[in-house]
């Protein structure tokens, strides 16, 4: 059974963000569920539905990436039709982190009374217009990671999503850079990694850095998928990094 996701009002989002000046509100972030008396919803049917029984795994320290990957695919499948403009709506992400996935967020990030205000802002809120904002909110990061890597033309549509989550360094190095928003670059980079999973973190870092430098003198977004792969091959040759395929 699907549940309609209710959107918080703008005023409510602002009031929640002021949690540092309200002891009552600050305490809510130490609890297992958020008291709905603090939440004011718009109360109109929205286009967003999520399975009522959907659970997101948090995993243990060891298998956190696997759990994040599973959650990422689940959230994206539920909210597949979200437009990029809707995905920029802070009210949606705050609604999810404060209501439907409040307990997930608490568990995933180990939030308790000692957690800093900045961490609470990063994980529960959606402040700013940067890539980091999208990649910090506990739920939007899951959706965006799948959105940037989902490829319906592959046998496994989430093959690249799984690769992205397979290495924490890959996630930060690739997605949190401007070129991480270029579909051609992300897909070419992940394909290179899929064909060369012997690459070390240092080698991957060399590839990001060099590609970033090339972005200063070439318009990376104008390159085709094949051209990005050729650029990466040239960088690898230059850096004595052996690449297959």
């Amino acid at each position: 059974m699907k549940e309609n996701i209710q959107i918080l009002s703008k005023e409510c989002c602002s009031q929640l963000l002021d949690f540092q000046s309200s002891e009552d509100l600050r305490k809510e972030y130490n609890k297992a569920s958020f008291n709905t008396k603090h939440l004011e919803f718009l109360n109109i049917p929205t286009d967003y539905y999520i399975d009522k029984n959907l659970e997101l795994p948090t995993g243990s320290k060891k298998d956190r990436s696997t759990a994040d990957c599973e959650s990422s695919i689940k959230i994206f499948q539920e909210l597949k039709n979200l437009t990029p403009v809707q995905a920029n709506d802070k009210r949606l992400w705050l609604s999810l982190t404060h209501d439907r996935f409040f307990s997930y967020t608490i568990r995933r990030w180990g939030i308790d009374s000692s957690t800093s205000a900045n961490t609470i802002i990063d994980r529960f809120f959606f402040e700013g217009a940067s890539i980091e904002t999208r990649m910090r909110n506990s739920i939007s990061r899951l959706w965006w990671a799948a959105k940037l890597t989902y490829d319906p033309n592959r046998k496994d549509e989430f093959e690249l999503t799984k690769l992205l989550w397979s290495k924490q360094d890959l996630f930060q190095g690739l997605v949190e850079r401007t070129f991480g928003t270029y579909e051609n670059v992300v897909k070419a980079f992940l394909q290179i990694y899929a064909d060369n999973n012997q690459l070390t973190e240092d080698q991957l870092r060399d590839l990001y850095k060099s590609l970033n430098s090339i972005g200063g003198v070439k318009l990376l977004s104008a390159l085709s998928y094949k051209e990005v792969k050729s650029e990466l091959q040239l960088i690898a040759n230059h850096k004595n990094i052996e690449l297959y395929a």
Partner: peptide, 29 residues
């Protein structure tokens, strides 16, 4: 070439030699 980047929706469009470029309003804000 014109590159249009919307940092809110993380979308980039690159147009070559086009007099008119159209982008759906669900993609840009």
């Amino acid at each position: 070439f014109v590159k249009i980047y919307c940092s809110s929706t993380l979308n980039t469009w690159t147009f070559y030699n086009q007099a008119t470029m159209k982008i759906n309003e669900d993609e840009i804000i």
